[in-house]
Design a protein around this nucleic acid. Sequence first.
DNA 1: AGCACGCCGACT
DNA 2: GTCGGCGTGCTC
Length: 706
Amino acid sequence: MPESPCPSPREPSAAGGGVVLTVVVPMPAHGGLDARLSYRHPHPLPSGTLVRVPLGRRTVLGVVWPEAPDGEAPAREALRPVQEVLTALPPLPDEWCALVAFAARYYQRSLGEVALAALPPALRALDAAGLQRRLARRADMTPAAPTAPAPSPTPDQQAAVQAVAEADRPVLLFGATGSGKTEVYLQAAAQVLARDARAQVLMLVPEINLTPQLEARVRERFGAAVVTLHSGLTPAQRLRHWLAAHLGQARVVLGTRTAVWTSLPRLRLIVVDEEHDPSYKSQEGARYSARDLAVYRAHLLAAQGCRVVLGSATPALESWHAALQGRYRLVELSDRIGGAARPALRLLDMRTQPRGALLAPALLEAIQARVARGEQALLLLNRRGYAPVLACPDCGWTSGCPHCSAYLVFHKDERRLRCHHCGHAAAVPRACPDCGNVDLAPLGRGTQRLEEHLEQTLAGLRRPDGAPVRVGRLDADSARTPQQLQALLGQVHRGEVDVLVGTQMVAKGHDFRRITLVAAVNPDAALFASDWRAPERLFALLLQAGGRAGRDATFMAAQGSRAELWVQTAYPQHPLFAALARHDYPGFAAQQLEERRAAGMPPFAHQALLRAEARTLEAALAWLQLAAQQTDGLPGRAHVTLYAPVPMTMVRVAGVERAQLLLESASRPALQALLAAWTPRLHALRRAGPARGLLRWAIDVDPLGY
DNA sequence: AGCACGCCGACT
DNA sequence: GTCGGCGTGCTC
C-alpha cells in the first residue's frame, strides 16, 4: 500500500471532498445503523485497510469494507473524514473480511461488532504512531525453520496425511485416544509448510492451558515459527502474536476458539483438535462456533488449496453425520500405537449395592488392590465441593442461593457455602435459619467429600514402597491457577498421588502413565438430563477418561495389569454403556442419530434460540411473546416452528431472570431468512418501548444446550 | 457498546 | 449547594 499523505483532519478538500469509503466500526446492530458507516478520504483505500475514524465524540479503529453502505448514507459534504490510516500494516485479507461478513450474517450480529471483536483488543487502542513504535520494537523477529525432525509416521498416519492433502472437502479424522491424531496434524502441517515457503497453518484446540504438552510438541517440531493465541496471554503478547501472524512471520498459529479470527494472509491448513468440544462454541457476544467457522474459512480459501481437518475420538454428531453423508471425508486411524489394550468396562449396578454407599465395595476393593501394587486410580465425579446442598432434616430447609435458582454448595475446607453460578459465598450456618435445628446435613457428594471418604477408607494402606497411600484432588477449586494445576499434575506424574479424585477436568489429555483404573462415580444425571446433548457428552467423557487408563504398555505388562473403566450406575442396561463397553463410537452415534432423526432434532433440524434476560421472569416471557408475534409474515416463517417461550433450566442467575424461545426448521435457509428479517424488528421492538424490565436479548444460532 | 445529556437522592 | 444514580438517545 502506498504511503498516503496524512489526511487533513478538519476541512474537506475542495472539489467533491475526495472519495467516500465504507468503514466498519465497533457498534452493535442497533436500530437502523448496521455499523457500516461512510467517511471521506482524499483517495481510495484497499478494502481491509485499518483506519482510525471519528465516531461520536470518540476516535475508534475501523476497517475499510469492500462493499458500499446499504441504507441512505448522509450527503458527501456531511461525512466526517478518516482521521488516520494505519499504513504500517497491510490490509486484512479479503478472505478475512468475507469470514467476518459471513459470521455477522449467520449469527445475527453487526459487522462492526464481529470485525472489531476479531481483532486483538490492544490493536483497537493503538494509533498509527503507537503501532509504528510497536512494530519497530519487534522488527528483529525472524521466521525460523522447523527444529526437531519428525518421527516416521505409521502407514495409517501416512495415509491420513495423504488424505488430508488430497481431500476436496473437510476431513474428519476419527481415531481413539492414543491413535496418533496429533502426529497426523503435525505431519500434515509440515507438508504444507515445506511445499510453500510462506504457507501458514492454524491449529485450534479447546483449551490450551489444560494441555501444555501439545503446545510443547508443536514448538518442538516447528520452533520459533509458532505463536499461540488464547485468553491466557497479556494484551501485549496477544497483539505481538497476532501481528506475527498478520505479517506472515508466524507459520503456525496455535490457539483457542478466538484464534479462528486470526488474519493469516497465506493460510493453507486449519486443524480443529477435539472438534466435538463444546468450548468451540462462544456463549458471549456473537455466539459463533469456531469449528464451523473453520470449515467455512477453508471453503473460502479452497481455490488456494486450503484444507481443514477436524479431529476427534468422539466426533460431534453433526460432524459424524456430515461424514456419513459424504459432505466430510472420513479418515480413520486404527487403535493405539503402543498396542496397549483398551480398558475393559465394568458396570456396577448401584441398585444392588449397599444403600447410600458412595463407592461400591467391589470398586473400593479394586482400588485398594491396585494401589497396593503401586498402580494409580482415577475417580471421576462431576461435582466440586463437599456436598451440593446443605439441608435441615427437621424442617426441610435447603441452602438456596439468594441470587440464583441453584443451591449453595457446601465447601467443608473453607467452611463456607458457595454458589457456583454467581460466586455468592456465605458462612455455614450454625443452626437451621428456619427452625433453629443445629444438626444440618450435607446432602449428596462432591469431590471434597469423596476425597475425604477415600482418605479415611484407605488410611493404613501401604504402597509397595511402604509409604502410606496418598489421595489427591483435581478440580476448579484445587487448581485455581495454571501453576496450581501444573503442580498437582506434577505430583500425579511423579507418583506422589495414588488415587486422584477429579471433575471432568482430569479427563483432558493428561498423560498419567501409571493409572490402570478409572471410575465414574455418579454419571447417571447425564443420562436423563433436560439437556438432550448430555448423553453425547457423557459418552465422550467416559471414553476419554477411560483412555487415561493403561497408557503405558510397558508398565502394564510389567504389572500384569489390565486397564479397567468402572462405571457406577442405576441404569446398567442403558444402550450408552453397551456401546461404551465395545468402544464403539460409530454404534453409539448410529443409535443417537436414529433417536435424533425420529425426534426431529439436530442435525436433522436446525435451531436458534432467542434468549431474554429481565428483572422479572414475567418481563422476559412477555418480551419473548411479543417477539414471537413479530415473526408473522416474515420470509421462511412457514417452514419454521416456534415453540412457546419457557424459563431456562437455570431460571435465575445473579439476580437476573432468564427465558428463551426455541425456533426450529428442517431448512437452514428458511431459518436464516426468518432470523435475518426478524432481528431488525426485534431491535425496533426494543426501541419502541414495550420491553419494560427487559435487560438484554440475544439470538443463539445452533445453540449447544438448553 | 460507549458516551453523552438529563433529571432526582445523600454528602462536603 | 454538588456528586452521582442509570433512564433515553445518538453515533457517517
